[in-house]
Design a protein around this nucleic acid. Structure first.
Lengths: 150, 150
DNA sequence: CAATTACTGATAATGATTATCAATACCATT
DNA sequence: AATGGTATTGATAATCATTATCAGTAATTG
């Protein structure tokens, strides 16, 4: 669990793009990789404040953008909420079931849906680059709670 | 093509909610129903400026919110772009293929995907309220153009 | 018609994200 | 190790879609 593979990809990317290796980015990436999935910039900023002292929030935005560019993170934007970021290395594409009560993200996957999507775009001569399936509703825990609360 | 069904639903809704029937809302709804799909507030505002004189942009936001509440419109939000609204009366649920070059929205639909989504949520004990499938890429026209341009 | 209260429109406020910019840090080269 | 070129940082100003505010207006009810 040393994140060496992710860091190797990151290092390769910054070399290719003539970016520089900085302490701040290392701290941010380390913290990002060690955190819960679907973290916000604000949350990361708070965690870094405690562990490594202040790092400008703009730098966190910038670093996560780089992580997305090199395919190591995904940005998830829902409606008007602030963006969340998830690791993408070692994770396959998945859909999100999003609980509108507690905010939980459930990651789900169905090979058959993926396959049908490929058929769908083909029908329209469309070349897909990425796709996103989000299902909004109530998770089972919140459903039960609601039943009790009335 | 007089939109009478939509207006009936709208009228029923405002009566139930003790809202009032105003000229501005009538103009906005008429214009919305007569416009292209996937319109922005700004675009609607511009069109109304010409046809019916100025209507405050806040009023357009408010009216579209009401339309969404009574199930006559859907809000579509992509990333950081401004929201777009589509009519939902008389239209079935559909997915969107979104061209990242020209911005075109293609509406697509696959009953089998819908069905698999229902199975998927069941597996997780999740109660869906709504869902959204968006596929980003290049439409066929832009693909061909890109081929020519190099 | 009068009273009540929702609505309007101008505009201020909000809030996440991005741009700016002077100071600093990285890194290849000498 | 010093130097120069330039990417990076952090503070903060700017942006921009959307929402809140509020005084004046207009719809509805009795």
């Amino acid at each position: 669990m040393e994140h060496s593979e992710v860091k190797a990809i990151y290092n390769k990317y910054i070399r290719e793009k003539n970016l520089r290796d900085t302490k701040q980015r290392e701290f941010i990436i380390e913290e990002f990789l060690s955190s819960k999935k679907h973290i916000t910039v604000e949350e990361l900023h708070g965690q870094l404040e405690k562990r490594t002292g202040n790092i400008g929030i703009a730098t966190i935005y910038r670093t996560l953008k780089v992580m997305c560019e090199c395919g190591l993170a995904n940005e998830i934007k829902l409606g008007r909420e602030k963006a969340r970021y998830e690791q993408s290395f070692g994770y396959e594409h998945h859909d999100h079931l999003i609980c509108e009560k507690c905010g939980k993200f459930i990651e789900a996957k169905d090979e058959r849906i993926e396959k049908l999507q490929k058929e769908l775009v083909k029908k329209y001569g469309f070349s897909p680059r990425a796709h996103k399936l989000e299902i909004y509703g109530l998770c089972s825990a919140c459903k039960q709670k609601r039943r009790k609360d009335g």
